[in-house]
Design a protein around this nucleic acid. Structure first.
Lengths: 325, 325
DNA sequence: CACCTGCTTGAAACGGATTTCACACTGGCT
DNA sequence: AGCCAGTGTGAAATCCGTTTCAAGCAGGTG
């Protein structure tokens, strides 16, 4: 069937040991032999069988990637980043979507764990304790979640929030609503904390609403309460919620940004496509995915242990924010 | 380290052959033995090593999934469908994103092919000839592309187009534009063909524009030409293009649907989120992914050879279409 | 010249499961 | 009693690379 190492050995007139050495540790075989073996190998189109190699080395060359919900447009770009970086490192990516279910997540993690060298978990919804337990069993890196002792990639939320608030303050807003995401969400806690800090520093009055489901529908359902709160601007937990707000505002004839400014978080591709386009705090996505893979590969090569990387955020000013009335 | 079949055999007082039989072909071992072995196995938390199994059986229990661009919101739902169905069948999914590059695609397919039992290719951009060559090397199923001799999952484009056009005709539209996608795209050819057929039957005057890149920007760039064409309605190659049209129309102060009706294709989640919400022909996404996996598993089990499944489409009437002026 | 070192290379063991082949045993039939 | 078929089980071969161990050989040293 497929060409094996023994075929190559036979054709090159050497032992299988020499073939594997010529290919994986070239420096230990005599140059003339090495070249002969390599030529035969490539002329036969030989590629070592991954299963066989994995059996002896214990490494699969695969990494697992877990996302809560691929339908949430925040994640595909991260997946693309992971995917691209993994490919460069000659690793394949197992993808698992947990449908926002923490229990399914725990099950999938353990299932995946046995087939990969390490895991990249995107915004995992699992309890911290359980996450930590899993981290002990299999090398893993967190993206958009932080836990002591586990390598992680996050963004500078505080700075992003500061950019957002400065922008609104510069436009004259003094009373601002925040629509919170799920209470159990690490990202939400992080955002609330940052926002409170910067609001206090800026002397801005903060009205906290929610929490809502972090989706379009969540924004729709809270929109009327936002209007009732008599604020001139609203910061949403994320872009999807912000889009829900925009949708409902449009339906009620509330003009954005003339009547109220709307600001999102994430910078999903849609944010720029709606009208008015959404002003939002851009979180690195593809870059975060890449960084996650980098950290994981470092971890696998026993280099660093618990690195924590914080990527920069950037405010994207678009049409949904304007001067306070 | 991990618990192996030999550990189980020793603890159960049987040979390794009996252990593997008790677990994979239970009917051939005596019930009392079988139960004893199974209990020992589960008490030890034994799970067969996939690499070892793959080495001998030649099956990996993995399937490969190729998508052109995960950032295109049409694909994540398909991936979710594939993912979910594969999980049920106890298969893991390798994901590869080709970034719309036909050459990268060809390379990735061959790379993936060696690590999986079969492939699901979503809207592949490769040339038909090359695709057919790959199909000979590895079991594969096409989703949203059709080629003779290769199992495929598509949708009833003709029927979807008929629904769309009937809807517009009922609203009084008689002169309609179509914004074409890439000429090399199978999906575009399919849509043009269907549209011409039904337009002729309905006596509708068709203005074909394009082709454009099948993205938001494509819609933006062609919007002014659509307006210049003096039509009362426009059907876009897909929803992203339609959203681009909406965006540009809004910027130019053209009212939708009062001045012009806009109709998309795909029903990506965003379609319902914008304002006005986009009327569109919904193509099955998750369902198509599931069907793709089903077909692939059938193929692997040597059942069917070249099945072709066509899923139903449905017109989603929303706010972007209205009476002709 | 005897001995040691370093460089190449090959034979064989190994990893963990599945599958083939053969053997032991039971029960039924002549 | 003798033979056959059928059932349950184990020993060993097998899948394909990687790694260990040992040996062959050339060149250098005392």
């Amino acid at each position: 069937m497929a060409v094996t190492i023994r075929d190559v050995a036979r054709m090159a007139g050497v032992s299988v040991a020499t073939v594997t050495r010529a290919l994986s540790t070239p420096e230990v075989v005599r140059p003339t032999t090495r070249e002969r073996v390599r030529e035969v190998a490539s002329s036969l189109g030989y590629h070592p069988n991954r299963a066989a190699r994995g059996l002896i080395t214990g490494r699969t060359g695969n990494i697992g990637l877990l996302v809560p919900d691929l339908a949430n447009p925040f994640f595909p770009s991260i997946v693309k980043g992971v995917q691209a970086r993994a490919l460069e490192a000659d690793h394949a990516v197992f993808l698992a979507d947990t449908d926002e279910d923490p229990d399914a997540e725990a099950g999938l993690v353990r299932k995946l764990a046995k087939q990969v060298d390490g895991l990249v978990l995107c915004s995992p919804r699992m309890a911290e304790q359980e996450l930590r337990a899993v981290a002990r069993e299999v090398p893993m890196v967190l993206v958009y979640r932080r836990i002591a002792g586990v390598p992680s990639v996050t963004a500078e939320f505080l700075d992003g929030m500061r950019q957002a608030l400065s922008h609104l303050v510069a436009l004259g807003h003094r009373r601002i609503a925040y629509v919170a995401g799920p209470r159990s969400s690490w990202a939400n806690r992080e955002r609330v904390r940052s926002l409170r800090t910067v609001a206090k520093q800026a002397g801005v009055e903060l009205v906290e609403l929610g929490s809502v489901t972090p989706q379009f529908q969540g924004g729709v359902s809270v929109a009327d309460r936002v209007l009732a709160a008599a604020v001139t601007a609203v910061i949403a937990y994320n872009d999807l919620v912000a889009l829900g707000l925009l949708h409902r505002f449009a339906a009620r004839g509330v003009a954005v940004p003339d009547d109220i400014s709307v600001l999102g978080f994430d910078d999903i591709p849609l944010a720029a496509m709606v009208h008015p386009a959404l002003t939002t705090v851009a979180l690195p996505q593809g870059q975060a995915g890449q960084a996650g893979v980098d950290l994981l590969l470092d971890l696998l090569n026993k280099r660093d242990r618990a690195v924590r990387r914080e990527l920069p955020t950037q405010l994207m000013v678009r049409g949904s924010t304007g001067s306070a009335r």
